[in-house]
Amino acid sequence: MTYAAKNLTTGGRELIAFRVGDQEFCVNIMAVREIRGWTPATPMPHAPSYVLGVINLRGAVLPIVDLSARLGMKPAEPTVRHVIIVAQVKNQVVGLLVDAVSDILTVRDEEIQPTPDISSEFEKTFARGVLAIEGRMICLVELEAVFPHEEREAA
């Protein structure tokens, strides 16, 4: 309630920042349902390489996506230190495997800089902007772009 009120008054938004490899990313906090530790996933046959498998989230079957592999970086080797961000994407719930959750940020829209004009289409599709926080660069990720509907169907 207080967050919402603050958002309304300052026009700011809250983001969850996390580390994947040596880079930092963030997503809208409203999409995040919970954050939990890593548990071994059951692999799925014929799944894309970035889908690690499914886990049991209090009775629901939750697919786990290796965000590192999904974003084109080297596949993660999950350890107990890894974290799963349970996020709502459209009407489905997915688990994102990340190295660690680093911060909760409150930023105003004007602090988000546009994505730099880079050659790779791939980064442009999921990056919605970059943030400069305390000398770090954090990339704002659009989850719906990370899991486009067509691809999920085909997977």
Binding site: H46, P63, Q92, E153
Partner: peptide
């Protein structure tokens, strides 16, 4: 347990279940 709810239909797999060790 439905796989389709959060994932998609997987050919060769009818559904999922949760076993006694809590794993799918």
């Amino acid at each position: 347990k439905s796989l389709e709810a959060n994932y998609t239909h997987v050919p060769g797999i009818a559904a999922a279940t949760i076993l006694g060790d809590g794993r799918v």
